[in-house]
Design a protein around this nucleic acid. Structure first.
Lengths: 128, 128
DNA sequence: GAAACTTACATGCATGCGCATTGGATGTCA
DNA sequence: TGACATCCAATGCGCATGCATGTAAGTTTC
């Protein structure tokens, strides 16, 4: 009885593992090869371009952190890479000078829009 | 129509991502804290202790590689760590001296059996 | 049976990650 | 107002990973 439950959870886990691994590898490779973006970087651009529609074009680091499965430090470095590539800009918030506002640049929008079909195509291939 | 499909696949992906992330982090932490094992290391022990029941106590690197989501190099190093901890031994195969046979040691069996309930508990918590 | 190729595994190297710490800015409370 | 806690982000550090390559052993082809 218990053994049956255990069977089930193991199967579910290994299935999750399989799907996750295949999908994330493919996303990583295709985004990297086709658009010079890592998956984390793409995710940041994705969130920023969404926020920019409703939120007036900016988002705080903390907000991003809450929406991504990435540690604070990893996010900080991801943003640094994006900034270095000119896809995003950092600006310290006037009201709370501990916080950063992030803005996606026009180049960032272009890159994101170019990459999104690739992203969607991979997801459709794995989940549709 | 297409947009609806896209919605769906994005939702499925983000759900997969969430489950994968939560589960693997928790597995990693609990195995590390409680049993001084990384998740990859635990997986190797798991496969080895299974093979040892039917396969006479050994498995080749290539076989492990096929059953895990880990590159050849990463697997090699994972086994090196396990060997250093005395949980596994490498032995070159007599018939094909390129290949390694891996054997789980008694200490390896102990460690694995101690860790498995932790592992199962996490999976049950996330999937049952 | 020698040369070319393939296979198994290890290793150098670069990269991205998380943890812990730091530094600076804000809040709180007496 | 001054001392202390809290918060935000950056950075030092160590580690696991993947890619490319090296080395040794086995296979194929002529």
């Amino acid at each position: 009885m218990e053994a049956v439950v255990d069977e089930g959870v193991c199967t579910k886990w290994s299935e999750t593992l399989r799907v996750y691994h295949n999908t994330s590898c493919e996303l990583e490779n295709e985004l990297q090869d086709g658009h010079d973006l890592g998956l984390s970087e793409f995710e940041v651009l994705k969130i920023l371009s969404r926020s920019c529609l409703k939120g007036g074009g900016k988002a705080k680091m903390k907000e991003l952190e809450g929406e991504m499965y990435l540690s604070q430090s990893a996010l900080s470095r991801t943003v640094t890479r994006l900034e270095k590539d000119g896809l995003v800009t950092r600006a310290t918030c006037d009201f709370d000078r501990r916080a950063n506002f992030l803005m996606i640049t026009p180049a960032g929008v272009d890159r994101f829009e170019a990459a999104e079909p690739t992203y969607r195509a991979v997801l459709v291939r794995h989940f549709a």
